[in-house]
């Protein structure tokens, strides 16, 4: 309260708005980060799944060739 009373209302509210902008954009950034992490994980899973399938097909082909 003392800090707030020592500065004018415009300065006080500008400071509050600045903090609000930083935190709000921070929340948006968390969402973006979360999404990119989840997407990356999904990609890794799908690449792994494809690799497993390719391996299975390779094995089948090799067995057929034999």
């Amino acid at each position: 309260m003392n800090t707030a009373a020592s500065i004018g209302p415009v300065q006080f509210v500008s400071l509050a708005y600045f903090i609000c902008i930083v935190i709000s954009l921070g929340v948006a950034w968390i969402i973006r980060l979360l999404f990119s992490g989840i997407k990356l994980q999904r990609n890794i899973f799908s690449v792994k799944a494809i690799a497993v399938k390719v391996n299975e097909k390779k094995n089948l082909l090799q067995q057929k060739e034999r």
Binding site: I21, A28, W29
Partner: peptide
């Protein structure tokens, strides 16, 4: 909000 976080927050700000 999760489908467009930055634009949503910008408007709200």
């Amino acid at each position: 909000i999760m489908m467009a976080p930055f634009s949503s927050m910008l408007i709200a700000i």
